[in-house]
Write a protein that binds this DNA or RNA. Sequence first.
DNA 1: GGACCTATTTATAATTG
DNA 2: TCAATTATAAATAGGTC
Lengths: 153, 153
Amino acid sequence: MSTRLIKGRKSVCLAKIENKNNRQVSFSKRRNGVFKKANELVVMTGAEVGIIVFPLGNKPYSFGHPNVNETIDKYVCEERPPSLSSPGIDDNKLKEKNKNLENQQEWFRGPIEKMNYTEASILKEGLEDLLLKVKNYGTECGYGYETGKWKAK
Amino acid sequence: MSTRLIKGRKSVCLAKIENKNNRQVSFSKRRNGVFKKANELVVMTGAEVGIIVFPLGNKPYSFGHPNVNETIDKYVCEERPPSLSSPGIDDNKLKEKNKNLENQQEWFRGPIEKMNYTEASILKEGLEDLLLKVKNYGTECGYGYETGKWKAK
DNA sequence: GGACCTATTTATAATTG
DNA sequence: TCAATTATAAATAGGTC
């Protein structure tokens, strides 16, 4: 008969989990937890949410709602200049510029499966840059534990 | 003496909250909840996380860790082609190409405060596009409630 | 790695001030 | 609006298989 060990959860302290195995397990559980919460936010409040999670030195996990193709005209109804993600512009000059852009950034625009890790990292970096831009545009962008309570700042 | 009403939380059902006021309140609370969970994931497991939340027809809220500038060389140590977010390339030809790129996409590269809503929406769209690319590259990208249990798919 | 278990902590819906 | 309270649902640490 083996010794009965205590099961229930322990209180969590906000610090890096040193044990590699525990850290990996917690990563999986909590990543799913964040995605689930995000999904609830999407369904219950009608918000749109995008999340990227990069575990240390590994492939990214992501959550996104809704899909770009499904909602491309939901918010953007006016004619618009070319962007990395909207190649469908009618004006020929713009099309040509877009094509040059494509040639310059082929690795970036191509299927990510063909990227190497460095390129994928740069993609991630670009994403973080966009995040920052949106962050500066939006409100209540940060979150921190400073005064004994979690505060949006 | 007023009638004592029940306080504690009710079980939540995964559906859009119809009452506008309740929806707004839930949005704020749950947005903070997601950011808090994300922050815990970052601190406890060393992952990098970026989140964007777009409430219907409003300014975006975001969470990001770490800051791009703080960690620009953490993952990308090799020399690399120009990207939207990495202007510091030594090769002059690449620099020139980058500059052309800037001119073509001025509205996109400029401060987001100066963008109109359409442009900001395109920025968001581009971000969703990047999310999709990363999604296709990564694993366990989706999340859904189908069989009575939450499953990563 | 995953699925399940259980004790407990944590998040939060509804209400009050 | 916005913070605090409270009852309760939900998340999860640590364990087993």
